[in-house]
């Protein structure tokens, strides 16, 4: 589903060039559950943004399989085409939720459908089961500032999945949550993975990272460890 070849990304931090991604080589199959860990500044968020088409590598190839099953190199793509790819294939969950404060929980979840120009009847049809699944029936009409952190992150997950993407990217999804709501959010994400979505989580949290079936460790822009649970001697 994902094939990353020889990808490099360099930032200019002051007058010091930082090699955020150094010759990254990565292959991810549909339905995988992946965690990316590593110290601050190791390039794990940059990798996630690159995988989510929010950022463009300096060189290399990034092949991503579209809904027609055809894999395309996204690096030379036009920004408008990338936007459509993000809309149709990729869901994001951020550490700080990034909900729009003036919209209710339901409206925030619905937003990708609105941006995609889907008529209201169909939006309602698709919205209802998701709200139920998230357990937000009582909270659907509330504004984000009336919700708890866990509820907000669940709204964000609803928004990330309503377009039924193949790839779900989560950047420190439990970073702002207490352990109880954090566990709830992780359970939800894992449930989605069980349903077939490819899940990639960036995290500092060792326990959380260990739950993933495949663990990637990054240091200084390089993948230093890439092991799957299946390969582990148990």
């Amino acid at each position: 589903m994902i094939q990353v070849n020889q990808v490099n990304k360099t930032f200019q931090l002051g007058d010091q060039p930082v090699h955020a991604l150094n010759n990254i080589q990565l292959k991810i199959s549909p339905g995988e559950y992946l965690s990316i860990m590593g110290p601050s500044g190791s390039g794990k968020s940059t990798l996630l943004n690159m995988l989510g088409l929010l950022d463009i590598p300096d060189d290399g190839e990034y092949w991503l399989q579209g809904c027609d099953g055809l894999a395309l190199d996204t690096v030379p793509m036009d920004e408008e085409v990338r936007a459509r790819y993000r809309r149709d294939h990729i869901g994001f969950v951020f550490q700080s939720y990034h909900l729009i404060p003036r919209l209710t929980a339901a409206e925030n979840i619905e937003l990708p459908l609105v941006l995609a120009g889907i008529p209201p009847d169909e939006r309602k049809e698709r919205l209802q089961p998701i709200i139920q699944r998230l357990g937000l029936e009582q909270r659907a009409g509330h504004l984000p500032n009336q919700l708890s952190g866990g509820q907000r992150q669940r709204v964000a997950i609803g928004r990330a999945t309503i377009m039924r993407p193949k790839l779900l990217l989560a950047d420190e999804p439990t970073g702002n949550l207490d352990s109880h709501s954090g566990a709830e959010v992780i359970e939800l994400l894992e449930e989605l993975n069980n349903d077939g979505i490819t899940l990639i989580i960036v995290t500092h949290d060792m326990d959380l990272g260990d739950r993933a079936k495949r663990k990637i460790r990054m240091v200084d822009g390089e993948i230093v460890l890439d092991k799957s649970r299946e390969q582990e001697p148990s």
Binding site: G52, L54, E79, E80, A83, R84, Y85, R86, R87, D88, F92, H98, I100, L111, P112, L115, A116, R159, M163
Partner: peptide, 16 residues
């Protein structure tokens, strides 16, 4: 700006 970034992450085109 953050909202714009979010809209773009959700797949809004620059034109939108």
């Amino acid at each position: 700006t953050a909202e714009i970034g979010l809209l773009k992450a959700l797949g809004a085109s620059s034109r939108q």
